[in-house]
Design a protein around this nucleic acid. Sequence first.
DNA 1: AATGAATGAGCTTTCATTCAT
DNA 2: CATGAATGAAAGCTCATTCAT
Lengths: 212, 212, 212, 212
Amino acid sequence: MRSKESGPTFTEQARRTQIVAAAIEVIAAAGYPRTSIAKIADHVGIAKSVVLYHFATKNALVTAIVEDVLTRGAAVMVPAMAAETTAAGKLSAYIRSNMRFMQVNQRDTVAVLEILSGFRTESGLRLDQKLEQDTAADPPQGDMALLDPIAILELGMGRGEFRELSPVLVRNALRAAIDGAAWELGRDPDYDVIAYGEELVEIFARATRRES
Amino acid sequence: MRSKESGPTFTEQARRTQIVAAAIEVIAAAGYPRTSIAKIADHVGIAKSVVLYHFATKNALVTAIVEDVLTRGAAVMVPAMAAETTAAGKLSAYIRSNMRFMQVNQRDTVAVLEILSGFRTESGLRLDQKLEQDTAADPPQGDMALLDPIAILELGMGRGEFRELSPVLVRNALRAAIDGAAWELGRDPDYDVIAYGEELVEIFARATRRES
Amino acid sequence: MRSKESGPTFTEQARRTQIVAAAIEVIAAAGYPRTSIAKIADHVGIAKSVVLYHFATKNALVTAIVEDVLTRGAAVMVPAMAAETTAAGKLSAYIRSNMRFMQVNQRDTVAVLEILSGFRTESGLRLDQKLEQDTAADPPQGDMALLDPIAILELGMGRGEFRELSPVLVRNALRAAIDGAAWELGRDPDYDVIAYGEELVEIFARATRRES
Amino acid sequence: MRSKESGPTFTEQARRTQIVAAAIEVIAAAGYPRTSIAKIADHVGIAKSVVLYHFATKNALVTAIVEDVLTRGAAVMVPAMAAETTAAGKLSAYIRSNMRFMQVNQRDTVAVLEILSGFRTESGLRLDQKLEQDTAADPPQGDMALLDPIAILELGMGRGEFRELSPVLVRNALRAAIDGAAWELGRDPDYDVIAYGEELVEIFARATRRES
DNA sequence: AATGAATGAGCTTTCATTCAT
DNA sequence: CATGAATGAAAGCTCATTCAT
């Protein structure tokens, strides 16, 4: 007899993983707005209601996907950044580890992008806005916080490595450029994200460094 | 009875414009997936079927919106670029004129972004892919062709202004960074796209120029 | 060309009437909780969506039914009561006209009872509570107000016809006893509501009159 | 292993009681149509399947609830009536003991009313009709039989206490008036059922007594 | 040029019930 | 005795589209 505190069953975990994986495939292929619970269930080969047994609502499923992928991304990126000591090194590591993750987890990346741009709550909020709201009282700690490149930019300015720049705006440009890779991947699965990443490394190295 | 050669009636044109304008407002406010023909019709104050009388399908309406906004954007950007002689000048003009257009036509910009990321044909194609396909035999001429910054990058390399770079990848990064502004505008209508644009000008000037 | 202010079309009215009639039949036969839009549509021989084209939601349909029947009931009962001068006369007329209406409109009566006892808003309100709320700022005027037998009881006490009694409690007893007939009709369509009404007339005449 | 003759286990009985109690609370609060087995299980803090382990179907649970409450009601009312010798006394005792039971067991009363008006078998029968059918071969004995006020009315007529009246119809009026209190309790938990009961005592005393 | 009416396909979600453990 | 997992049926509702007028 399992104690009441025991977490999800093994079977439960397996199914959830299976459903999340199927959902990612469907979303990456068809786009978020054209993804229904029925299609996901079909893809797994189970009944529609089974999906809703494991994820109370479609929103819950979608949130789980995003959190899953983001967490896995952070698990790769944070150590890569920590291994570097200079701000410039961290910035390059941020870009490279992100692109490597995108390359290895193509569909996951595309699916998350699809969700982030397609999802809306009943009141019209995007998922990122909803997550912000949800974590208002419970701010992200550890890995997720470290993921915002704004910290790197401020570090670089503080250390005199970087020129005077607007951390917020440069961060926005960087994130947009990186996310652009996911967009391209959605169009062409063979898009060379690594090469794109190297170009970004070059662009942002030049764009941020203090001139002699 | 109108002669066959005569274009659309004046009334016809007025209605189409009116509907496109309403659709842009609704899409920008509610997001593409939450926009229905009914809502657009309501917003104009006409019957749902009137919308479909003027645009055979929802896809046709959506395509018309994108083409309309893109054309108006090109009309502003092309002259701005043409006024510059150096590649660097053209690149800055490309960014600045684009951002100015975004600022002046906020809702239009956001709506187009919503459509480009939310729309899919029955077979799963994105709108940009569909447009490419549609114009395969009938390639874009004039303004639209000039809009691809790839030409600027190649010019800069040819003239020795720019370093060796991958025109395609830098173009992708630039487009992604610019489109990122539309994304931010969707979240916060007061986002300072002009300041963001200046930061982009700086980033891409540094990122492209040949070092002495 | 109809003017914009023109009310519902003839066709529209016909369909609405037809749907309301079908809904009453289904509800009276199967009970409110077992009545679905699909069943109603089947009963009319139209598509489910046609019902929702004419009544935006199930709630709207149900509300329309109740209002329709109640209005028709009031149209019969109010004149019957007005024709009497004494409070005792009005009380008897109230009961008799109500029972006659029930007899003639059996299914309508049963359906309304089913709805009133089975319907709940999302927040748990019963339909009568919802209607009260809806008409808080816009209190019922004319016929509906006259229908509350409380006025008769107060009149009778004022005129010295009736004994000292609690108008609210006696009204409640009277309404419950009358509604009981609808309940019986639901079980047995041949229930003699007229005879029941005469017994009620006797009961409440004796129960209210001042003793000599 | 228990011997075949032994009744339900103690544990078994406890669980059943617990589930019935929870079901009553949920039904009284949310209404029968909005009550699901899942909600009841949640309220007890057990799994949904446990409820169905103890009650084969939802119908069985609901039937058990009604029988439970009705039995407890009879246990209070029958002695109260038996203590009176005159028909008039019994009639008043019937009303008063019923109302007192309602006051003490508010939620139980409301729940039973909810069930009686909301429940339907697959074939459309109401619960009271189903119970009648179930006990056709096995007619109610003892307490339940005594509960029908028809016996009191006939006694009163036989003894010359009451006027000539239709026992069935007066019984129906009386039951409807009493059940009306449960309806009011469902709307307002603070409804003064005792006062209402006293008014009913007055009404039916006057309504039934032979005039001098 | 405009529109009211109708419709089918699809959507998310709820739920009582079954079954193996 | 208890439960997690699975499921099919049905619910209310949305929507792009068709068609006759």
